[in-house]
Design a protein around this nucleic acid. Structure first.
Length: 425
RNA sequence: GGAGAGAUGGCCGAGCUGGUCGAAGGCGCACGACUCGAAAUCGUGUGUGCCCGCAAGGCACCGUGGGUUCGAAUCCCACUCUCUCCGCCA
């Protein structure tokens, strides 16, 4: 959320941001409501002042019979009027809030302007795509031949866009979760969190999923609970409505969670394999930092995510997202894209964003810069460290052998009793 | 699921027979005094948001939402959450 005062004073900047991001919102009405609200507020506050003053007079007991009754009657009418105006005010404020919650964050100055992924900028790449002496198969075929992925059964049990892992496949998924958690907690200084997978509407609003993207989330019928689309939601909201001590910053958290996405509007895209699922696993990195450090913290966050892919030996590139690809809440974002040999393309496997104070303002996450000073909003960041399902896909494809087996990356072998291959039973 | 207790400022905690309560007291914190310096001690100060604005000022907030009243932290109703006990249960 943007600061209303900032919006009022810099409507052009807000408009520019909406255009750059392709995230339109009703700024004109917001500004109208703002004017209306302030005028009404002055009126009603004058009435409240009057009521407070007269009520105090009455309380002091100086008034006698007729005069007392007259004042009470007057104030009764004033109160009625106040009640009406307060209700009006409440409606304006609610309408205003709805628009304000739909205004996108401003892009960071370093973000390249652009419309779609063609305008993203490659920052660096790592590793070389492997050469095959045979035609590499897509990961779902590798997995199905090995008997470790079973999409037909997942479809029977639940429906499309769900996966079932079996045997070494299930173990691979679990190994990756543990490997990533171990790496980030032991070597990168993150504290492990295991959060609830269901959150309330306030939390979804705090990180920006609501109100704008309600159709992307699964909601539990008859409740106020949503299945989390990412651990970012519970972990960022961990400090909702809190004032943190300056010495406590920066805070680094890492969390494994299942993630649930309705994938509304994704009909026909990535219908096969593990790339786009309604439920997938992810290890997420979340940071709370002082505003002046957020961009350097983003760089470190990206490197922490890259480390996962490097240790797994998976070729990838780092892309700086252009304004149009930034999304609603981010000020700056990098994607890590991993090489998928079967399609011959790089696919997103991690997304690392600096949200500046956008989420912090929504969620009321502040810190006190120095004792006695006014609390101000922290900056929040998060990034996948990394998505598990897509990592499985990348491993199956990059490490597949001509005989149908898959080499287990060395760092994962401790989780496989030292074994080096996944082979068909 | 049943019964009871509670929710107050950065934290703890009074107030809850309605007005003198934005709220005692303590802790914490800031500044000052004392000191070579520090601790201890003493003094002063210290919530948030909004409106107006040169300044002064005003309004709101005591879990949330309603109600009663000239006036509500205080009374009434509903809801949420926390704790205790009982039941059920992985």
């Amino acid at each position: 959320m943007l600061d209303l005062k900032f919006v009022r004073e810099n409507p052009d900047k807000v408009r520019e941001a909406m255009e750059l991001k392709g995230e339109p919102a009703d700024l004109d009405h917001l500004l109208e409501y703002d004017q209306e609200r302030r005028a009404l507020l002055q009126e009603v506050e004058a009435l409240k002042q009057l009521r407070n003053r007269v009520s105090k007079e009455i309380g002091q007991g100086g008034l006698r019979g007729g005069e007392l009754d007259q004042k009470k009657e007057e104030m009764r009418q004033v109160s009625d009027k106040i009640k009406m105006m307060d209700e009006q005010l409440r409606q304006i404020e609610a309408a205003q809030e709805q628009i304000l919650l739909r205004l996108p964050n401003l892009p960071d100055a370093a973000v390249p302007p652009g419309k779609d992924e063609a305008d993203n900028v490659e920052v660096r790449s790592w590793g070389k795509p492997p050469r095959f002496s045979f035609e590499p198969l897509p990961h779902w075929e590798v997995g199905e031949r090995l008997g470790i992925l079973d999409f037909p059964r997942a479809g029977k049990i639940t429906g499309s866009r769900f996966a079932l892992y079996r045997g070494e496949g299930a173990r691979l998924e679990r190994a990756l979760v543990n490997f990533m958690l171990d790496l980030h907690t032991r070597e990168h200084g993150y504290q492990e969190i295991f959060p609830p997978f269901l959150v309330n509407a306030a939390s979804m609003t705090g990180t920006g999923q609501l109100p704008k993207f309600a159709e992307d989330a699964f909601r539990v019928e008859g409740t106020d609970y949503y299945l989390i689309p990412t651990a970012e939601v519970p972990v960022t909201n961990l400090h909702r409505d809190e004032i943190l001590e300056a010495e406590a910053l920066p805070l680094y958290y890492v969390a494994y969670s299942a993630c649930f996405r309705a994938e509304a509007g994704a009909h026909g895209r990535d219908t096969r394999g593990l790339i786009r699922q309604h439920q997938f696993n992810k290890v997420e990195l979340v940071k709370f930092v002082k505003p002046e450090h957020s961009n350097e913290e983003l760089e470190k966050l990206v490197q922490d995510a890259e480390r996962v892919l490097q240790l797994l030996g998976l070729p990838y590139r780092v892309m700086l997202m252009c304004s149009g690809e930034l999304g609603f809440a981010a000020a700056k974002k990098y994607d890590l894209e991993v090489w998928l040999p079967s399609a011959g393309v790089y696919r997103e496997i991690s997304s690392c964003s600096n949200f500046s104070d956008f989420q912090a303002r929504r969620a009321g996450i502040r810190y006190r810069p120095a004792p006695g000073q006014k609390a101000q909003y922290v900056h929040t960041l998060n990034g996948s460290g990394v998505a598990i399902g897509r990592t499985v896909a990348a491993i199956l494809e990059n490490y597949q052998q001509e005989d149908g087996s898959v080499v287990i990356p060395e760092v994962l072998r401790p989780y496989f009793n030292g074994r080096s291959h996944i082979t068909a039973p």
